[in-house]
């Protein structure tokens, strides 16, 4: 369960007292999120990334950078943020050709992009933008619905479907490339479920509601960060024990006699 307001303030206070639990070798070693500056929306979910990464740092072993970096596709620092989040609350202009080239290289070279449709139910204008721009990024690899056996549903928490501030769809969509999903697309306003105000209150209500929904949204967010850093580790790990035991690298003691 995500921490309630009292727990949150207590934990934050404790965090201040104990400072960071680990010290990375500089900021480049920390896992952070870059907010993609494209269209409207990157600044519409204040505190959401910080809250998500705070949860990540408390629940997992990942050393995080809580504050997001806002980057455009043409920024020099784009490649310092292998995990990008593109939040959209409305329509946007098409990416420039140069931006398509750079963002395409980013994604093919190993970067990840999570697209969060934060528009109200019934508003498909951002969705149209996404399909247009992703279509240009991967002309031969369309967005496709992912099954609930996708690794993103089991990188840390075991999940069956995506959650968010709203429940518009029961699936994620993805572009598959190089045995991974460099683009994941959800339409449930995931980051809308994360933000708190300065007093520790949730900025936006979850719909249809309930603490369980927000907690599940956090689990989706944490799994996303895990997926960006570990890729298909969990998928392979299922077979690890079998692989280890399959390898015949030792010999059982021979029988005393062999006739």
């Amino acid at each position: 369960m995500p921490l309630d307001r009292r727990q949150f303030i207590a934990a934050a206070g404790l965090g201040l007292l104990t400072a960071r639990r680990a010290f990375a070798i500089g900021e480049d070693a920390e896992v952070g999120i870059g907010l993609l500056q494209h269209g409207v929306g990157h600044d519409q979910r204040p505190g959401a990334v910080e809250q998500l990464m705070w949860e990540v740092s408390k629940r997992t072993s990942i050393d995080v950078r809580e504050a997001p970096a806002t980057v455009s596709p043409l920024d020099d620092d784009l490649f310092r943020h292998p995990l990008l989040v593109w939040i959209g609350t409305g329509p946007c202009e098409p990416l420039s050709d140069e931006a398509v080239t750079r963002l395409g290289r980013f994604l093919r070279a190993g970067g990840s992009l999570f697209i969060d449709d934060a528009t109200p139910p019934g508003d498909d204008r951002f969705d149209a933008c996404v399909r247009r721009d992703v279509g240009r990024l991967f002309p031969d690899r369309p967005l496709a619905e992912v099954g609930n056996d996708h690794t993103v549903y089991r990188t840390f928490f075991l999940l069956q479907r995506p959650f968010g501030r709203i429940q518009r769809t029961d699936h994620l969509e993805a572009v598959e490339f190089d045995d991974r999903s460099p683009v994941l697309y959800g339409r449930n306003d995931l980051f809308g479920a994360f933000g708190r105000d300065s007093l520790g209150n949730w900025r936006l209500p979850v719909v249809p509601g309930g603490a369980g929904q927000r907690e599940m949204a956090f689990r989706v967010g944490i799994n996303l960060v895990m997926y960006a850093t570990c890729l298909n580790y969990k998928r392979d790990q299922v077979h690890t024990t079998a692989i280890l035991r399959r390898r015949r690298w030792r010999v059982e003691p021979p029988p005393r006699e062999n006739r």
Binding site: R59, T60, S61, R154, F156, F157, E215, Y233
Partner: peptide, 26 residues
């Protein structure tokens, strides 16, 4: 390469808010 990976995804200091069967950890 025949790769066997083991990642430490959670430490003793991590806050435990989920039941064990809700996690994919081994």
């Amino acid at each position: 390469v025949d790769l066997i990976s083991f990642f430490i995804l959670r430490t003793g200091a991590s806050i435990d808010v989920a039941r064990r069967d809700e996690l994919s950890l081994i």
